[in-house]
Design a protein around this nucleic acid. Structure first.
Lengths: 232, 232
DNA sequence: CAGTGGTCTAGACCACAAG
DNA sequence: TTGTGGTCTAGACCACTGG
């Protein structure tokens, strides 16, 4: 007999029952064992299907208590954090970047705090403009920590943006990212070919390798930029 | 002998090898079979560990070709889409909402397109202000599709916000969400207790149940709002 | 063709928590 | 105490694709 009951099939069937209200929010669903009997498959197969549903927030699962349809079914959206060059190219445009500033200096207090750094160490401070079809796309302000990136002063960031170099050469263990909106300043407006006060989408990201901060970056997108994600 | 080699342990060890450069970007790592021998465990256990690493973008896996460390290790950030009330309460504030407008009307063209609706049907149009500690937090403009939400005109949205009612009562099969920035208008500024032109963080979300659009919503956050996510 | 990852199975033991 | 989910095992077959 063929396997019509792959874990994907089972997951789809179970998701359907949740979505169409066969099993209502808060309700207990049959145990893995019973579902395995129903679908004539091994419990591990049902487990794989249910785990996926729990991961997306549709189910709450607890040992002994069983699996319940989530009462407040949070949904999760997964953002892909890409190299800016790829993001530009994905939009069908030609990518180019310009390194505007690149100097060693001590970061301001606010950033020391953000990077969880306690010494007044010198870092590499960069300003980069990323362009799509030669039109301003993102203005990037970045701080790079030379205590982690030993050879950082030898890299030619005119050839490769720090954004891309880091992704290819340095992996982080953890980090945080925040999204917000900001009115752009006169000088930023100049760089982004926009008007002072325009609302811009801002991403701030800081990454660490174990306890050491690698880099902190602020990406100021051109006005009208929007980031889109599919929900499933 | 105890199992010191749970799939989590194995995943951590393998992740470490990728992060510290033992295995470099683009490099082929040992097959599941070999790793299972190394860790003295079943292949399924290694598989579970590797699958997780592939899911987060650290590995590229292909049948026959084996597993390679990703050349462009995309990282993924998972956003939890919560009920606004919970988001306010998570920030330690008291939640309250005010239904400002609630009327039946035909949505404008732009929204018909966004909702992939082809008929000039009447919908429920709502404006809601969400408050945190009685201070404006988010201004919400929402369209609800009565062809899917049959009893929508009977719900008392003064008691429960549409945001919360929908999450608890209607599940979607898919949707899309976009993040952007906007200069707030004079009337929005009035509602949000801000100034005209201030930059506000905007979330637009549209959800469907199979082919039918359920709702489309635009959330205009108070200036200074930011959304933060952990990367791991 | 052969070796890889993808999946499924039947069984087992364990950790947990509701009753 | 007992039934649940969480995990691991040893083995198997399949789908895919590089050589």
């Amino acid at each position: 007999m063929k396997n019509f009951a792959s874990w994907q099939n089972i997951q789809d069937m179970l998701r359907r029952r949740i979505i169409d209200g066969t099993w209502k929010p808060g309700e207990l669903i049959p145990s893995e064992k019973r579902l395995a009997e129903e679908f004539q498959c091994a419990r591990a197969t049902v487990n794989r299907a249910l785990r996926g549903l729990a991961d997306t927030g549709l189910l709450d699962r607890r040992r002994r208590a069983g699996s319940r349809v989530a009462t407040e079914p949070s949904r999760y959206a997964t953002l892909k954090i890409d190299i800016i060059r790829l993001e530009v190219e994905r939009r069908g445009a030609k990518y180019r970047h310009v390194l505007i500033e690149n100097r060693r200096t001590v970061p301001p207090r606010r950033l020391q705090y953000q990077m969880k750094i306690h010494d007044e160490i010198e870092m590499l401070s960069q300003s980069t403009l990323h362009l799509a079809d030669d039109k301003p796309f993102v203005y990037e302000e970045r701080w790079l920590n030379p205590s982690v990136l030993r050879n950082i002063f030898q890299i030619d960031f005119d050839q490769v943006s720090a954004n891309e170099w880091l992704v290819r050469n340095v992996m982080f263990t953890h980090g945080d990212i925040s999204f917000s909106a900001a009115n752009i300043t006169a000088s930023e407006a100049d760089l982004l070919d926009a008007n002072e006060g325009d609302a811009a989408f801002v991403i701030e990201r800081t990454t660490w390798q174990d306890e050491q901060c690698i880099t902190s970056v602020r990406l100021l997108h051109r006005p009208s930029f929007s980031m889109r994600v599919e929900l499933s």
